[in-house]
Design a protein around this nucleic acid. Structure first.
Length: 377
RNA sequence: GGAGAGUUGGCUGAGCGGUCAAAAGCAGCAGACUGUAAAUCUGCCGGGCCACGCCCUACGGAGGUUCGAAUCCUCCACUCUCCA
């Protein structure tokens, strides 16, 4: 059972934690940022390009892969790792988030969710057991419990009701764990701190045959709430999470969010932001966000970020990146994605070093003030 | 030489008496993006202002008809097609 994954907390600096998660596909240094590769692909990169960037774990998505190409095919082809030619760790989201983001085409019941494929409208049913089974059959290292992510703005009573459903589904998800994949529970509760506390108590103590979740995630944030509210939730919830298991803040976030999340005691993050924004022309640099499409870069022959050693920053200019973007060249997405992911991965490396040397507080302060000073010239 | 079609804002191109500062697309400019239905979406895009309204300049040029013209008439300039 303990061979699913192991977590070692190596060091703490304030609330910030430096650790290691060991999986069948290698060891992950935490705090970690996990690039999102929904359809078994980090958009615009080949697996080889991704490998070169060096992430130790990426995300895939149950909902999307079950629709296409389908779990039977992925399993038959040897699992997601073999399918995409990736030999490091994979975590899958359970599909719970798609109940939220594709809300128009689903019906939530106690047994699970009936929904229509956004691709062809055909009917599907996904239950906690089904989700865990699919994730397990796809051979992922870490599966997520099937949860409901309530929208921002619901009443306390509505969020509470949803949370209890998530708890019941969590129990069923845990019961469906076979041992092949690790399984994380998800804390919900919206922006209501009392519910968050109750949710942590439920999820953290949940056990089947004397064994609980392999990690605990905070879900249901960054769904439209103001940033202050999000961090109120994170700062309140993270300290309540088990010390001996990895803590995962789902769907977050900006570079500042990562730094602040680590400060709250989070070990794992994922977000589409670096990859999506890259494709949309927004790049993250050591001096803040840069929109590469603006005119001021038309003849700028400097590297995007002089403090970055990625392929993009060491081989092409801002002017070239702008040119590629303006002309809808595919290479624009490739270069931009390489840079943004490099920036995120470098940031996490720096964070880990700062924690290890007990200087995370100073690192955080310097980082945030540098960002606050604004965009790169 | 003859017959016909056309000239609209940076470009392509609608409009063919008032509801037109003028559709639409492109280009341009700005912004958004947080467990990816996203190489997507939104806004601005003649000038000016005491800007949810007003003024100026505008549909090749010059005149004219009309209460009113990008739209009708005359002449001029230029472009294209077809026949010799």
């Amino acid at each position: 059972m303990s061979s699913r994954i192991t977590f070692n907390l190596l060091h703490t600096d304030g609330a910030a934690r430096r650790g290691q998660v060991t999986t069948r596909h290698g060891t992950i240094q935490t705090p970690v940022f996990m690039p999102v590769g929904t359809l078994a692909s980090v958009k615009s990169l080949t697996t080889a390009q991704l490998q070169q960037l060096g992430p130790e774990i990426i995300l895939n998505n149950t909902y999307h892969l079950m629709l296409r190409p389908g779990v039977d095919l992925v399993e038959k082809l040897g699992g997601v790792h073999k399918f995409m030619g990736w030999d490091r760790a994979v975590l899958t989201d359970s599909g719970g988030f798609q109940l939220f983001s594709l809300a128009k085409i689903r019906k939530i019941r106690e047994e699970g969710v009936e929904f229509r494929s956004h691709i062809d409208g055909s009917k599907y049913f996904l239950s906690p057991e089904g989700s865990v089974e699919i994730q397990t059959r796809m051979g992922v290292d870490i599966a997520m419990a099937f949860d409901e992510c309530p929208a921002y703005g619901l009443s306390h009573a509505e969020v509470e009701k949803s949370m209890h459903l998530t708890h019941r589904w969590a129990k069923r998800s845990l019961a469906a764990r076979t041992g092949a994949s690790a399984l994380f529970g998800i804390v919900q509760g919206g922006i209501h701190l009392d519910l968050r506390k109750r949710s942590v108590e439920e999820i953290a103590s949940m056990e089947i045959d004397g064994s609980g979740f392999d990690g605990v995630a905070i879900g249901g944030v960054s769904v439209g709430e103001p940033k202050e509210e999000m961090f109120e939730v994170v700062n309140h919830t993270a300290p309540l999470l088990p010390v001996d298991r990895p803590r995962y803040l789902m769907g977050v976030g900006t570079p500042e969010d990562l730094v602040n999340g680590v400060a709250a005691g989070i070990d794992m993050f994922d977000c589409v932001m670096p990859t999506r924004n890259a494709r949309n022309g927004t790049l993250f640099t050591s001096q803040g966000k840069v929109s590469i499409k603006t005119a001021k870069f038309a003849a700028d022959d400097r590297p995007l970020d002089p403090n970055c050693s990625c392929v993009t920053c060491t081989t092409v200019s801002r002017a070239y990146l702008r040119h590629l973007y303006i002309n809808d060249e595919i290479a624009a997405s490739v270069y931009n994605t390489i840079h943004n992911l490099s920036f995120y991965l470098d940031l996490m490396r720096s964070i880990r070093q700062a924690i290890a040397s007990n200087s995370f507080g100073a690192f955080r302060e310097a980082f945030l003030s540098r960002i606050a000073r604004g965009e790169a010239a």
